[in-house]
């Protein structure tokens, strides 16, 4: 319990540091926010002054910083410069497609990663291991925008096996593969080495000495323990998923947070960028917390205190 509290309190400085960095970065982005806000609309000096006041730009930096932090905590990060819609609303609108893509990509990535990793780990240095690791290598080396475009061209344009821009689950196949391939390579390597490590543990040797078949040992005894370390990576995968989303959504013309982020940065829609980064850090930190806690639950041998 004390651990929980400590972990949660520990989040505060992290959020503070990140949000401060975001604030600073956006402060130094060139361009007059009022010009951006008015997005080229003709406006008298009076209108501009009113906008400046409305955006709080007439106040000193430190006051704006304070109010930014307060608003970040409250989850009220203002209205978009471009559409004048509340940014939180805009983000929620784009959440679903990105979650779908992430779920699909995660499913493909984890399935492929686990299969490759296990195949490679069971018989290290066999031809199976080499082939599986080669596939994993391809996975981490393929530029995902190239993969995506090639998949569309082959399976969409040429073979017409899957819809190109359609809705529904079939339209999710190619984007999921694109994101999944990217994820699977790293995961496969991790699982393989994790299995190798576990196989050297005493209890596995004991099991083997008892004369159990190789695959029984692997599946029954090694697997559970071997999969624990990769679980901790799930938090890190979040970053990869978002990266995958930015590229994949752009290639597949899918709506979503990745597109929203890219557009907001390119359009210098500052409140939207702020909100996206604030929420992304929040989600990332909470995910990591959950993973840390899960880690303790899955493997009781690991004392929570150590996990800090």
């Amino acid at each position: 319990m004390i651990y929980f509290v400590r972990r949660i309190v520990g989040i505060i400085p992290v959020l503070l540091v990140t949000w401060t960095l975001v604030f600073i970065v956006l402060e130094i982005i060139p361009g007059d926010p009022v010009n951006l806000m008015l997005a080229g609309r003709p406006a008298s000096e009076e209108v501009r002054q009113r906008e400046r006041e409305r955006l709080g730009l007439d106040k000193p930096v430190i006051v704006r910083y304070g109010s930014f932090l307060v608003r970040a905590v409250k989850g009220d990060l203002g209205d978009s410069f471009r559409t004048r819609q509340p940014v939180t609303e805009m983000i929620l609108e784009q959440l679903r497609p990105t979650l779908e893509l992430s779920a699909g990509g995660f499913l493909v990535g984890v399935t492929l990663g686990v299969v490759l990793g296990v195949v490679a780990g069971i018989r290290p240095n066999s031809w199976l291991d080499t082939s599986a690791m080669f596939v994993a290598l391809i996975g981490v080396s393929l530029p995902s925008f190239w993969t995506g475009m090639t998949l569309i061209f082959v399976f969409g344009t040429t073979l017409r096996w899957v819809p190109i821009v359609g809705d529904g689950i079939t339209a999710l196949i190619l984007p999921s593969i694109t994101v999944g391939l990217f994820l699977s390579g790293g995961l496969a390597r991790l699982i393989r080495s994790s299995i190798l490590e576990v196989m050297n543990q005493d209890y596995i040797r004991t099991a083997r000495a008892k004369g159990l078949a190789h695959w029984v040992v692997v599946m029954k005894h090694a697997m559970r323990n071997a999969l624990i370390p990769p679980v901790t990576l799930l938090g890190v995968q979040f970053g990869l998923l978002i990266t995958g989303a930015v590229i994949t959504e752009s290639v597949f013309a899918r709506p979503g947070l990745g597109q929203l982020l890219l557009q907001s940065v390119l359009n210098k829609d500052i409140p939207l960028v702020q909100a996206l980064v604030v929420y992304a850090t929040g989600v990332y930190i909470v995910l990591n917390l959950i993973v840390d806690l899960l880690y303790g639950v899955i493997d009781p041998r690991i004392k929570l205190e150590q996990a800090t």
Partner: peptide
């Protein structure tokens, strides 16, 4: 009105009958 910024994807979607 479906937003498809990439020209080759627009054409592919047209030929696939999606638009």
């Amino acid at each position: 009105v479906r937003f498809i910024p990439d020209a080759s994807t627009r054409v592919a979607a047209l030929e696939a009958g999606e638009v």
